[in-house]
């Protein structure tokens, strides 16, 4: 049984090295009954294209961002609600309770998930020092074009965005077409945006994460003993990457500071405004029926207990 896996991570990156190592171990432990074949570097297309190819059976799995997996389990979006977490301790508490639920939800939706890996918090980065929502409203804020989630996010703060394709961002930051972006520290370094911005608003805006999934139909063709091996190896591997990514983001923050970027912390009143605006928007989204209100309230209780 060959399982074909696509990933956006380029060959030679630490992610792909870990993937391949796990694939080798699985092949060894199952006497080559289960073999993982990888298509790195986004050669199979973006997450949407990969999902289409999973549906027709050309591919069987991938390391996909949470946003593209919400069609299999809408509640995944709870982690990515704006400002729902205030720090990593709250994230850890919530994930301890919710990760297994989300995994179960994804499997019921048709995708076997081997856990979640942190992409880090996205922060607002700008050429100007921004602390209040009003500061941001005055800026030229980039969102990825065609990204409904990002569009809803900025509109809930009454910010009018500049939608542009990702490939335009760097040049547009240089030319001044946009001056404010939101991304994780790792992302800022990888995309070279850190050379174009000066300030980082020290507010964990959105929690970014991904999951390693295999199509349930393909997974069920594996015999049960081998399924256990695959689960074990992939879950351990992805948990390692989860931990490693946290370290990488922390060192990325240090690197950004070393490059001369200033982390600005909003005044308490401004912080309060950020959080209350976000909470209103989040509750409104939950009330619209897409996400389970019961799960949302539970999540709030868990993170509030940490405050």
């Amino acid at each position: 049984q060959t399982i074909k896996i696509a990933s956006l991570a380029p060959d030679g990156s630490s992610w792909m090295t870990e993937f391949r190592a796990a694939g080798d171990t699985i092949a060894k432990r199952t006497d080559k009954r289960v073999q993982l074949k990888f298509y790195p570097g986004g050669v199979m297309g973006d997450d949407q294209a990969v999902l289409r190819k999973i549906k027709i059976g050309q591919l069987h799995g991938g390391a996909l961002t949470a946003g593209s997996l919400t069609e299999f389990h809408p509640n995944l979006q709870l982690y990515s609600l704006p400002l729902v977490f205030r720090n990593l301790d709250e994230v850890d508490a919530a994930r301890k309770a919710f990760d297994p639920r989300f995994q179960k939800g994804l499997e019921e939706g048709g995708m076997v998930s081997f856990g979640f890996a942190e992409g880090g918090f996205a922060y607002i980065m700008s050429t100007q020092s921004l602390t209040t929502i009003d500061d941001v409203r005055k800026r030229k804020v980039w969102i990825p074009s065609g990204d409904q989630f990002a569009a809803d996010l900025v509109s809930s703060f009454n910010i009018s965005p500049t939608p542009l394709p990702l490939s335009d961002v760097l040049v547009s930051l240089q030319s001044g077409l946009i001056d404010t972006v939101a991304t994780s520290p790792i992302g800022a370094l990888a995309l070279q945006w850190h050379n174009q911005v000066k300030y980082v608003t020290d507010l964990p805006l959105v929690y970014v994460f991904a999951s390693f999934v295999i199509d349930k139909k393909a997974f069920n063709k594996i015999n049960e003993a081998d399924q256990k091996i695959v689960r074990e190896e992939l879950t351990n591997m992805f948990a390692r990457l989860d931990k490693q990514n946290r370290q990488d983001n922390l060192s990325a923050i240090d690197a950004l500071k070393k490059q001369g970027l200033k982390f600005v912390t909003p005044e308490p009143a401004a912080i309060q405004e950020w959080y209350s605006t976000a909470e209103k928007a989040n509750q409104k989204l939950v009330n619209s029926g897409k996400l389970s209100n019961e799960a949302y309230q539970q999540l709030l209780n868990i993170v509030r207990a940490k405050r």
Binding site: L164, P165, S167, D168, V171, S172, S175, G176, L177
Partner: peptide
């Protein structure tokens, strides 16, 4: 127009 920030490359 690109370098003055009036339009994006695309």
């Amino acid at each position: 127009s690109v370098y003055s920030g009036l339009v994006a490359v695309s």
